[in-house]
Design a protein around this nucleic acid. Sequence first.
DNA 1: CGGCAGCTTGAGTCAATTCAAGGCCTGTGG
DNA 2: CCACAGGCCTTGAATTGACTCAAGCTGCCG
Lengths: 247, 247
Amino acid sequence: MTVGQNIHSSPIPVLCHSCEARHSGVCGALDPDQLVRFAETTTRHKIEPGGALIGDAEPVYSYSNLLSGVVKLTKTLSDGRQQIVGLQFSPDFLGRPFKLESAINAEAATSVTLCSFPRAAVERMMKESPELEHRLFKQTLNELDDARELMVTLGRKTAPEKVASFLLMIGRNMHSGVDSAERPTCFDLPLTRAEISDFLGLTNETVSRQLTRLRADGVIRIENKRHVTVDSMSRLEQRCGGRVAPL
Amino acid sequence: MTVGQNIHSSPIPVLCHSCEARHSGVCGALDPDQLVRFAETTTRHKIEPGGALIGDAEPVYSYSNLLSGVVKLTKTLSDGRQQIVGLQFSPDFLGRPFKLESAINAEAATSVTLCSFPRAAVERMMKESPELEHRLFKQTLNELDDARELMVTLGRKTAPEKVASFLLMIGRNMHSGVDSAERPTCFDLPLTRAEISDFLGLTNETVSRQLTRLRADGVIRIENKRHVTVDSMSRLEQRCGGRVAPL
DNA sequence: CGGCAGCTTGAGTCAATTCAAGGCCTGTGG
DNA sequence: CCACAGGCCTTGAATTGACTCAAGCTGCCG
């Protein structure tokens, strides 16, 4: 999976031209000149489901933009119990700045494409461009919000509510058009039942039973185990446990 | 503890001189001149346990340095179920930058002292000093690490493991001297049993039972319901569920 | 074709909850 | 000074939601 023809003269690197993350991801923080220098160090990768992104011996993956696919971040206890502590979608930035040891593992949940860069290049660029650091900061704040939302789900919701909340979250992240609360939404689950259970702190059997129940109740339809259609998102929302009431 | 000795042309504000957060907190990012301007807008507050920090109608609390005490961050479902999604200790910075609506409530768990500043002052200072934003970024990354650690606890640990993990975390955050794994550590619990249960996703009865069990097993001693002594931290650690295995 | 991984479903079990009662402090008012 | 009320905490007994164990289904791949 090599790409990197080094392009020194053109205003904007060819690869970046058509890049999904050119404007929306962290690269949007860079001006053309910075982008050119930065792009010299980047490489594209494709990773199949189950492939490790970090935790293995490949330091080039240290930092990446996620261009497509879903990445799961996991933590594991020594007896094998596992918890998914985050899911990342494009155009998220992958990697933990300012720390060599990541205490989490990152793994491709679906087939994934990355634009990767060496740690040093990112950290140099971050010193140079406060705007880049600013974007990373904002993403981190969003991840923290997501993490805390998931904590409520893990600590205080019932199994039916957990599964409904998961579907709602996935539906919102994988939507490919307008999302009206009343228009049908459909998507492919990026995770297996076992992975969903690691996300929600349940067992795969319980996840399966709850999905069956939602299907029986007419809240969702499922084809081929993975493809889900939600006719009414608001009906699904009702099953997520009462919304948080600020104040 | 001399206050008047090293007076520069831009004297450091008197209040900041003896401030616990002068160097360790976010204020450490500011040079004396910046600090002087910044300090003009700050006010100190003392808040008793149970007092709300945000979520109420007092915008002056929007951002603060936590100088002493413990603050709990909570989320609540509409039927009253509550989850503590974070605990903050001095010299943490309180507040969610770049967002007017915080989806979480912050409340004093113990008696708390704050150094507060208006939102606008912080955001102005942040534009001016990338170092300030950098420190906030780093704290946020640490909070994210903590949040993900807690997710494992919430999703995958048993009640005994949860309570042991909580004690370990508190012990490490409230330690007031050297912490050897084998030397006795003691501290006051900053939370009631009910609050601990909201932190761990349990009921107060279960928390109480597990504390009783740890006491009966000689892992901890408890005086006055709140004061805990851990003779051997490593023994407590053994009850936290296997440590995460990176890779 | 067999083997395997992922998924579903059922039956029985158990950890944590709910419900209930009582003890221990602390502050308050007679 | 004591009596009393209200938090907070502990403990017991009964209940239950999710888990474990087990069996069978499906689709895919060699």
